[in-house]
């Protein structure tokens, strides 16, 4: 029902252009790591850092071009959700590294 109401007061849903830009950027950011790995351009820490950088960039592309993070009547919800999301993302990544670091000690 809300989906109908929202058409009424012209809330933005992004333009065709922004969707295409987002789509192209996402594909480029996906292909770069693939090429880096397949053609053995980088290795070791440099490769891992490059892949993670592409992943983080893609995260922002999706937030801005597909999730319309800048729009909406009540950005407060957006900010709250983003902060919680960032905390949990940090927990997943840093927590995993911390919990799994025993592996390097064992091997």
């Amino acid at each position: 029902m809300m989906q109908h109401d929202s058409h009424g007061h012209g809330e933005g849903h992004g333009s065709l252009k922004s969707y295409v830009i987002g789509f192209v950027l996402s594909i480029v950011l996906t292909i770069i790591p693939l090429v880096l790995v397949m053609n053995k351009v980088l290795s070791g820490t440099a490769l891992v850092v490059a892949i993670m950088a592409m992943a983080v960039l893609q995260l922002f592309v999706q937030l801005f071009f597909f999730m319309h993070i800048r729009e909406g009547e009540k950005p407060r919800y957006n900010v709250q959700a983003l902060i919680l999301g960032a905390v949990i993302l940090l927990t997943i990544v840093a927590g995993s590294i911390w919990v799994m670091s025993f592996n390097s000690m064992v091997q």
């Binding site: 919990v99 799994m100 025993f102």
Partner: peptide, 21 residues
Amino acid sequence: SVLSFFTWAHHFFTMGAGADV
């Protein structure tokens, strides 16, 4: 609901991740 995201490793204490974890 928030704290529930910070307890997962208690399911595998015996993995031996070390005293700190």
